[in-house]
Design a protein around this nucleic acid. Structure first.
Length: 357
DNA sequence: TTCCCGTCTA
DNA sequence: TAGACGGGAA
């Protein structure tokens, strides 16, 4: 396949040339510390650079080394992650740091295969760290790479399917120059992010415009092929915001649902939202449900949440009853000034902001 | 509405 | 192998 090798070399040469003139200025570029590269890559999973950037700065500042992260309490890590979404990333990040520090002697894994064993590190992230920090020849395949390869080579495999991942990884690993794998990987992602964009790509100024399959066949807007089949679930949550003086009742969310490890309020879920669900709260009466319920709609990728917040005031003389109830139900009383230190879903942050908290 | 496709899990 | 997992921006 001599002609293919030549074609691939021409392709990677063009991409690298473009990259040298058009690199994104990112804070982790040129960094060789695998810890910081790992941090940046986990933060950037499913996340736009602009959104992840402040979190990267905060994490590097708060936890400059893997040791600092390992010694931090998980709740503090989740609080710093608040608002970024996909919270399992933060839990896995922290669990990995502990494992690297306490079980691996603080030695960061330094091969693709070893990196892949870390929780939350899949083939993309393992390739990124291995190529950036250790110059291992492993091609990254993220959304940008899918798009660039699908368009240039005219691949119409559904990129949401399982075989697509293998097909694109195999191709990218054929193309990647063995003498500068990290540069090439960054070049591909920047090229996809800045020029070969999902909408309105810069084909007129593209260095590959004479050989791009999609452009030559007028298929730029048709590639890559992505079959969207997410089912969106409609949910109705009724939250009870229970206060006793300056104490609020909070609930730490458990596994098996969204927002694991984050804090919100005691809650009842109903199928339709038509019927106002009831919750047995000690020492409260109808008159003590002070304000009109506040309604919020919150959109996630797989769920549409319709949340209603009812405020319940408990007389301070009933504090000990409330404490017992919290104990039984697995709730916790949190003093108002401590609320800001809890890791909370965006929905709850929005509600609190509207309350002036 | 579509894009962020990355990883884990059932 | 499909579905779950966030939140913001274009």
């Amino acid at each position: 396949m001599a002609h293919k090798t030549t074609e691939y070399q021409a392709f990677s040469h063009q991409i690298l040339t473009w990259y040298r003139e058009n690199p994104r200025d990112l804070p982790w570029r040129g960094i060789v510390d695998p810890y910081k590269i790992w941090l940046s890559e986990i933060i950037l999973q499913q996340t736009r650079v602009a959104q992840g950037l402040p979190y990267y700065y905060a994490f590097v500042e708060t936890y400059p080394t893997v040791k600092d992260l390992a010694l931090a309490p998980e709740e503090e890590v989740l609080r710093l992650w608040q608002g970024l979404g996909y919270y399992s990333r933060a839990r896995n990040l922290h669990a990995c740091a502990k494992s690297i520090w306490f079980e691996m002697g603080g030695e960061f894994p330094n091969t693709y295969d070893e990196l892949l064993k870390l929780k939350g590190v899949g083939s993309y992230t393992a390739s990124a760290i291995a190529s950036f920090a250790y110059a291992e020849v492993k091609a990254v395949v993220d959304g940008n790479v899918f798009r660039v390869l699908a368009r240039y080579f005219g691949i119409d495999t559904d990129i949401a399917s399982s075989p697509a991942k293998k097909e694109f990884e195999a191709l990218a690993n054929q193309i990647i120059p063995k003498d500068q794998p990290g540069e090439f990987n960054q070049a591909m992602m920047d090229f996809g992010a800045r020029l070969c964009t999902p909408k309105n790509p810069g084909c007129e100024s593209c260095p590959l415009k004479d050989s791009c399959f999609a452009l030559l066949h007028n298929m730029v807007s048709d590639l890559p092929v992505k079959v969207n089949k997410i089912k969106i679930k409609e949910r109705h949550l009724h939250y009870y915001v229970i206060k006793c003086g300056k104490n609020w009742v909070w609930k730490k969310r458990t596994s098996g649902d969204i927002w694991e490890g984050l804090f919100d309020f005691p809650q009842v879920e109903s199928g339709t939202g038509d019927i106002a669900p009831a919750m047995e709260i000690p020492s409260s009466s109808a008159e003590e449900t002070q304000h009109l319920p506040k309604k919020y709609r919150h959109i996630l990728s797989h769920q549409r949440l319709n949340a209603v917040f009812s405020e319940v005031e408990i007389a301070e003389e009933n504090l000990s009853k409330l404490e017992n109830w919290c104990e039984e139900e697995g709730f916790m009383l949190v003093e108002e000034s401590r609320i800001e230190y809890l890791a909370k879903p965006k929905l709850i942050v929005n509600f609190l902001n509207d309350q002036g908290i």
